[in-house]
Amino acid sequence: MTTAPEKTTAGQDRLVPGTPLLEVRDLHVEFKTRDGVAKAVNGVNYSVAAGETLAVLGESGSGKSVTAQTIMGILDMPPGRVTAGEILFRGQDMLKMSNEERRKIRGRKIAMIFQDALSSLNPVLSVGYQLGEMFRVHEGASRKEAKAKAIELMDRVRIPAAAQRVNDYPHQFSGGMRQRIMIAMALALEPDLIIADEPTTALDVTVQAQVMDLLAELQAEYHMGLILITHDLGVVADVADKIAVMYAGRIVETAPVHDLYARPAHPYTKGLLRSIPRLDQKGEELYAIKGLPPNLYKVPAGCAFNPRCDVATDLCRTEIPALHQVTDRDGAELAGRKSACHLWKETLHG
């Protein structure tokens, strides 16, 4: 490792071309509770480059949020525990860093946007204070400077009359405005990477689009990496570059966004896409994947999806499928496409 170029001091700020901004390698996280050990994340691999948007898709309990919280370093430990894996940020394993080193990355280099802005903002502090805090803590700004920068940020995320509203409290804003404040807070120090955990779930549909557009626009402007965690396939299509689909704590399929929509290579992804309501199917019964997400205390043997899968074979019930490189009919590799299905060929081409 001593010869790795990205380890030199000069290389820490400049990204070595081809090195992803963030790389999660074989991450395992479990929760020890009274009922036993819940294996929430079981070997997740994904990476994001600067300026790239990775959408992580999955049902509740698929491990997408736990992975994000582990990256952020805000997982409750205990009961949570990282049992294996690496999280490389600019080539350095964050799991090996001291608490103080990680704290300095949080908010400054990697920022997070949470789902419910009303509960995620402190109810008793003004939004100006909460935004300004970023500058005061990380940059040692004075109260006055921090307030001026808070107003500037509120302008950036297009909150009307920012200067008048800077001393207002979170409950005095509408849902969409509150989420804009969350975004502003994440953007404050122009981080390299933003993790957005279901940023639009708590919003009205019309506001959802506005907030998503704003996020995508600012991401492009600052050339940040973005990990967008969602269970909403509609949100993903417009903004993401690539998608990682998670199920029972594993990545089951990764693909560039349009490939995945056009030709899924995993039965679970196929099921998800079929369950999107479509206008041309009006009047027909909406498709739903049968069964329930697996119990994390007792993940099924073999492929975790096998009890719900229409095409499962005996192999699926005994052997955990590897994340296979997906190829086209002639055997040529499809860039960025992987599937953790024994039957990916049949699923993709059949």
Partner: peptide
């Protein structure tokens, strides 16, 4: 949730 946010902002524990 706001405590989680405060930690995610990289604030020192004291704050």
């Amino acid at each position: 949730d706001y405590m989680r946010t405060a930690i995610a902002k990289g604030l020192p524990r004291r704050k």
